[in-house]
Simulated assay, not measured.
Amino acid sequence: MDEEHIGITRDRVALLVENALGQARVAHAAILDWVEPELPPARRLGAGRVMKLIESGRLFRSEVLDEIDALNTQIASEVAAGSRQVFRPHDSDPSHGHVETIRDRRAMLLSRAGYQLRLLHMAITTVLDAVEAERLAAKLYSD
């Protein structure tokens, strides 16, 4: 692999890392603002673990992805408990309409946090995939 290609690839990975770090800050704030206040103390362990991993700066490991997945599973369960489906009839024909999901305040806040955590998971995965792709490409060029 030539020097120019290596530089471009590393610049791309650096931009992906920058994006992931920014998303980590947003996810950390979402946990502080929306998850911790809405969960009872006994159910905050997963949130605390994810925050510590974000604070440690060691985001780009599979354990971090596992912890984010576990927290998102917990959040999804909490959101489901605070959500219900309602039928909204059309004004002109009450026999037709659509089903709408209604969430209480707590479920809405947790849902927002879950979304930010999913974005963080995607950003971390994108970095890990880009680094692996760079490694495999370098190996192919050297063979």
Rank of each mutant, 00 (worst) to 15 (best):
V17I: 14
E18D: 10
N19Q: 10
N19I: 06
N19L: 14
Q23N: 08
A24E: 04
A24G: 08
A27I: 01
A27Y: 04
A27G: 12
A29W: 11
W34F: 07
V35E: 07
E36Q: 11
L39F: 15
P40F: 13
P40Y: 13
A42V: 14
R43E: 11
R44K: 13
L45K: 10
A47C: 04
G48N: 09
V50C: 04
L53T: 01
L53K: 11
L53Y: 05
I54E: 02
E55Y: 00
S56G: 09
S56E: 07
G57C: 06
G57I: 06
L59H: 07
F60K: 12
F60M: 03
R61H: 12
E63I: 10
V64K: 11
L65Y: 09
E67V: 00
E67S: 12
I68D: 01
I68E: 02
D69C: 00
A70C: 00
A70T: 09
L71N: 05
Q74V: 01
E78Q: 15
V79L: 07
A80H: 12
A81K: 15
S83M: 08
R84S: 09
V86S: 08
F87Q: 08
R88W: 12
H90E: 15
P94R: 07
H96G: 03
G97V: 09
V99Q: 03
T101M: 11
T101N: 10
I102V: 15
R103K: 15
R106I: 02
R106L: 06
A107C: 11
M108T: 13
M108F: 06
L109F: 10
L110S: 09
L110D: 06
R112C: 01
R112A: 07
A113K: 06
A113F: 09
Y115R: 13
Q116T: 09
Q116R: 14
L119M: 14
L120D: 00
H121K: 11
I124G: 02
T126V: 05
V127A: 04
L128D: 07
A130E: 15
V131I: 13
E132N: 10
A133M: 05
